[in-house]
Amino acid sequence: MQLDHLLARAQSLAYRISADFNGQPLPPDRRACAAIGCLTVAQQHHCGIILLLRDDMPVHASAFALIGHQIETAFNALWLWYCASEEELGRFLADGSGKTMRQLVAQVDGVLAGSDGPEAALLRDHWARLSDFVFSGERRIRHWLNANEVDAMYAEEAVIELLELSNSIAELGLASFRTIHDKHFTAPRSGEAAPVRLDLAK
């Protein structure tokens, strides 16, 4: 079944992301730390969606609700890294970005459009699916509006769309983590704070 195969691929991706994240040095730079913190949360949302869908009684509505948080958190990371001014970074650390998901996605896309980095390439590859979810209205209740009877199970086609989108955001987050880590990870110089070890297992 296509969904079972996609769930297995999603779980394999989640393990690969965890292997990349776990135990890596966290640079002593507040912008990098804030962005990586967001990416870590987004990665946990990806894992949560997989668990909700793999359960013997799949919790579809909650998985559809969680995808919005995964997208928003991942794009907060991209916005912090590529878009936010120092003043905006300070406000984020105190109160959050204050931006809607649509604003975050649009601003990040505006900055990355035309660039050659891995995040930009992934964004272009998955833009149709992402923009359909973010900019085309509330998709997660469409099943309930179209159904003729009460049914807790969403159509397999809708669940497949959800999982493909979640995987694409997870891949985008992994690419962003690698960009940030590769730029900032250097051996500490004399008088510089040593990197903190990042462990998602805690």
Rank of each mutant, 00 (worst) to 15 (best):
R54F: 10
D55N: 13
D56L: 08
M57R: 14
M57W: 15
P58S: 08
P58D: 04
P58Q: 06
P58T: 05
V59K: 15
H60T: 14
H60R: 11
H60A: 14
H60M: 15
A63I: 07
F64C: 09
F64W: 06
A65Y: 10
L66E: 09
L66Y: 00
L66V: 06
I67S: 01
I67M: 03
I67E: 07
G68Y: 08
G68A: 01
I71K: 00
I71D: 02
T73H: 06
T73M: 10
A77K: 08
A77D: 08
L78F: 06
L80G: 01
L80S: 04
Y82M: 04
Y82D: 12
C83F: 05
A84E: 12
S85A: 08
S85V: 03
E86F: 01
E87N: 09
E87Y: 09
E88I: 10
E88G: 03
G90A: 10
G90M: 05
R91W: 08
R91G: 05
F92V: 04
L93V: 02
L93D: 02
D95Y: 15
S97E: 03
S97V: 05
G98R: 06
G98I: 10
K99P: 00
K99A: 01
R102I: 11
Q103F: 11
L104N: 02
V105P: 03
V105G: 02
V105F: 07
V105W: 10
A106N: 12
A106W: 11
A106I: 14
Q107S: 13
Q107A: 14
D109W: 14
D109H: 14
V111G: 01
L112M: 12
S115I: 06
D116G: 04
P118S: 05
P118R: 04
P118A: 08
L123D: 00
L123G: 00
D125G: 04
H126A: 11
A128R: 15
L130E: 02
D132T: 15
F133A: 12
V134P: 03
F135H: 11
F135E: 12
S136E: 14
S136M: 13
G137I: 09
I141A: 03
I141L: 03
R142V: 14
R142A: 09
R142F: 13
H143R: 15
H143D: 12
W144P: 04
L145R: 08
L145D: 06
L145Y: 09
N146W: 15
N146G: 10
N148F: 11
E149K: 09
V150E: 15
V150G: 11
A152D: 13
E156P: 05
E157G: 11
E161I: 11
E161S: 12
L162E: 14
L163I: 04
E164G: 06
S166R: 05
N167H: 01
N167R: 12
S168Y: 11
I169M: 02
I169H: 00
A170H: 02
E171D: 13
E171Q: 13
E171P: 05
E171W: 05
L172I: 13
A175F: 01
A175V: 04
F177E: 14
R178I: 07
T179E: 09
H181W: 10
H181D: 06
D182F: 08
H184V: 10
T186D: 13
R189G: 06
G191C: 03
E192V: 07
A194P: 02
P195R: 02
V196N: 02
